[in-house]
Simulated assay, not measured.
Amino acid sequence: MWFGMRSSTCLSLLLLSTSSLPAHGLPAQQRAIFPSIGPLDDVLLFDAPAFVDGNNLVASVQAFVSLRQINLTPFLSAVQSAIEDAFDLDIGNKVAQVEERLRLFAAIGQSGKDVNVKVGGCSAAASGSGASVGKTSKLPDLGMVLGNVPLGSCAQQNGALTGAVEDKGTIITDARKFENTIFASGPDGFGVISDIDDTVKITNTLDKLGVVKSTLLDDPKPVPGMSSLYASLTKSLATSAPPQFIYVSGSPFQLYPFLRSFISTSFPQSRGPLLLQNLTLIDIPGLLDFANSDGIFEYKTEMIQRIQSFYPAKKWLTVGDSTQKDPETYANAFRNFGPDFIACIWIRRVDGADNSDARFAEAFQGVPQDKFRIFSDEDIPSLESIDVKGGKC
């Protein structure tokens, strides 16, 4: 099954402080000559959730098209200098790793590109040639597209499907493959909406230097006990199908490959799509200040509303931490959609965050006490025995 996407801006404007990089990619007249994906293009095809609509499956697909990167030396030099100056930190022999993790921050978005994705095991859409998603925005084009795409009748309505970008007009002469996993889930049953930073991954969100080290220099580490807990949830929340996991994070989408690799490695049994922010970034040290960016509550609220529109009859366990706005976000979702959608809220208590009774009382106003739980790290093993599917929290 084919569907077409023409890349357009759906999210915020990205600003880089590296003067050697053009702001909007190739000139419009030059871009128009090459509407298909070719050897000079890169495509980031995000993993996607898929939901049942009638007898058909629909995927919420996101892709980012950029000019293929040949030489990142100017960008990397600027990043290294800025980070070392701002944080008095010696990157040293970690330069190659820093380059890999920051590669997408230097990407130049391409507009006017047709992205054709083939999904194995699914029929053609009703139109015969697939659906077009993405709506031209008044914002400068970033090469980002996001939309709901009908997959038609698929061999399975629960589990993982594979999508792959295939070009229809230009021959790609190298062996690159642009693929994603589409996580299909039925209309009912259970799911888990989870934060990432300091919920399942140690990020040290409250410490800027800690964020830089954990994001650029260190091997990512899971919060102790969370991998086992999430693996247990794949069994305890299963009905006729395994639960759907969706990770909603305030991290910028440019960290997607790094975070996807972490989830795949540390949480292999509870993989799922990652919904990340597209932030307006002003300077290089600010690239890693996403933890303190404005609008995290609004962003996560919008993502939960999207999830509710995909799966209005599915119940969700929501898991977050106390460093940012997870208590307020999940409680707001409970008040908006009720216990038939938000079955339970779990919040990890992080040292140094506002863990006061007053904060939680205000955040969970209107939410019954038996519908949320504030847990410490020593409590994590005991969470495995809680019968969330049976109504306990």
Score class of each variant (00 low, 15 high):
residue 145 V to R: 05
residue 148 N to T: 10
residue 148 N to Q: 14
residue 151 L to Y: 05
residue 152 G to Q: 04
residue 153 S to G: 07
residue 154 C to Y: 06
residue 155 A to L: 10
residue 155 A to Q: 11
residue 155 A to G: 09
residue 156 Q to Y: 05
residue 156 Q to K: 15
residue 157 Q to D: 13
residue 160 A to V: 14
residue 161 L to S: 09
residue 162 T to E: 10
residue 164 A to W: 07
residue 164 A to N: 11
residue 165 V to F: 03
residue 165 V to M: 04
residue 166 E to K: 11
residue 166 E to H: 12
residue 166 E to C: 07
residue 168 K to Y: 14
residue 168 K to I: 11
residue 169 G to E: 13
residue 170 T to V: 13
residue 171 I to A: 14
residue 171 I to D: 10
residue 173 T to P: 08
residue 174 D to H: 12
residue 174 D to L: 10
residue 176 R to I: 13
residue 178 F to K: 12
residue 178 F to M: 15
residue 179 E to R: 12
residue 180 N to P: 07
residue 182 I to Q: 08
residue 183 F to Q: 07
residue 187 P to Q: 09
residue 187 P to C: 04
residue 188 D to Q: 10
residue 188 D to I: 07
residue 189 G to S: 05
residue 190 F to H: 10
residue 190 F to K: 03
residue 191 G to S: 07
residue 191 G to V: 06
residue 192 V to S: 05
residue 192 V to R: 02
residue 193 I to V: 13
residue 194 S to H: 04
residue 195 D to P: 05
residue 195 D to T: 06
residue 195 D to H: 05
residue 196 I to A: 01
residue 197 D to N: 06
residue 197 D to W: 00
residue 197 D to K: 00
residue 201 K to D: 02
residue 201 K to E: 01
residue 202 I to M: 07
residue 203 T to P: 00
residue 203 T to L: 00
residue 204 N to E: 09
residue 205 T to M: 09
residue 206 L to R: 05
residue 206 L to F: 03
residue 206 L to Q: 05
residue 206 L to S: 05
residue 207 D to K: 12
residue 207 D to R: 09
residue 207 D to Q: 09
residue 208 K to V: 11
residue 208 K to A: 15
residue 209 L to N: 10
residue 210 G to E: 00
residue 211 V to F: 00
residue 211 V to R: 00
residue 211 V to K: 00
residue 213 K to I: 12
residue 213 K to E: 14
residue 214 S to H: 10
residue 214 S to Q: 13
residue 215 T to G: 05
residue 216 L to S: 03
residue 217 L to F: 08
residue 217 L to D: 05
residue 218 D to Q: 10
residue 219 D to R: 11
residue 219 D to E: 14
